[in-house]
Design a protein around this nucleic acid. Structure first.
Lengths: 196, 196
DNA sequence: GCTTGTATATTCACTAGTTGGTATACTTAC
DNA sequence: GTAAGTATACCAACTAGTGAATATACAAGC
């Protein structure tokens, strides 16, 4: 059976996802993950060689669902590319109000593992952020936006700033301000314009 | 003797600052802080009622030095407000290359404590970010920049995004891209202009 | 000058619980 | 019978926090 579809392994990753996101990787023991999955720790260590390995699996598993969430918000929004980009932030501000929202799991994990820059989970986070930036550049480009790569990067910076500011202030105004700034940047490059 | 200037307390906060910033608050034990300060753990618990209290003292102590660092970079830069803002990011990109750089301590602590939103250290981080935003709005305003408050917030978002992206990618290009975007936003509001 | 009292500051030794990880044995499917 | 998967029980190290004793400083009483 494939590593990815193994049902026991999936149960463990699902349990890890819930606990690691809710509490942070350092505050969750492997015992707690095993118990949440209804398995023993020894079984966990049969499927993962270490806690670090499990953390990386947790983030790898969030890459596609997160991208689809963002793309879904973008696609569902009415209006031009500026409105579609702003819709991502508007939706983000809405879900971030929920008490279970605890920021961006990729950024939080990178922050916890700042002393271990080569950690596989940090690399998984970097891959996800790169995937998002590439998807966004492609989406902007197919809406006839000039300099879509540079613009995508600026929007990613605003989004990561929004995640961080929301986490520290617990105030969605920051997320909406980022969305407004992002929409302004998009408009500045719509209809073939080019900036300095 | 004042709580702030007590030399033993200062030794403890200094030791905590080095260790917490280098390794993260969850990965540093109070024993390690006491040992680094050349004191026993029991003495630490004489000056601080808990580890959480010590973490908050660590961040409170970083507020002013960090603000002065940013203001110093801004003031020292040649040129208009756009260049001065961009200089903050340019300097940030430079110091972030150093292997000891581990991101923004305020944001990293908020990320580690995401499950405890009312934690005094998270509040200290929010205070610092607010202080920075206010200082920046004042500095922009005195350089005749319109809508300086809104602009300051946008720049703060870009800066927190730069901290986060740099931490996950370990690539200063992100910091410079944020600086470029920030300078563009400043220019759009220079000389009495106003935007949408 | 000496003693005594008191608040501050510091240490040693300890607890009770948790941590990531493992040695060994059992169970089930083929 | 063999191999994959799961369980029980365990370990040595580490964790935040504490109890009791001690050391230092400094002032008051005489």
């Amino acid at each position: 059976m494939s590593e990815k579809t193994n049902p026991t392994r999936k149960r463990l990753v699902d349990a890890a996802t819930k606990l690691f996101y809710a509490e942070g990787i350092g505050r969750v023991s492997v015992d707690a993950v095993a118990e949440k999955a209804g398995l023993t720790k020894r079984t966990l260590y049969y499927h993962f060689k270490s806690k670090d390995d499990l953390i990386a699996a947790y983030l790898d598993g969030r890459d596609q669902p997160n991208l689809e969430q963002m793309a879904g918000w973008f696609d569902a929004a009415e209006g031009g590319a500026d409105k579609k980009v702003e819709a991502i932030f508007t939706n983000l501000a809405r879900v971030a109000r929920h008490p279970k929202w605890k920021g961006c799991g990729f950024l939080r994990t990178a922050a916890e593992l700042a002393a271990m820059p080569g950690h596989p989970a940090v690399k998984a986070g970097a891959r996800h952020k790169t995937n998002f930036e590439k998807w966004l550049a492609g989406a902007l480009s197919s809406h006839d936006i000039a300099q879509s790569k540079m613009l995508a990067r600026e929007i990613v910076l605003l989004m990561d700033g929004a995640f961080s500011s929301m986490l520290i202030h617990h105030n969605p105004d920051y997320v909406n301000a980022a969305g407004h700034a992002a929409a302004t940047l998009v408009r500045a490059r719509m209809a073939g314009k080019h900036a300095a």
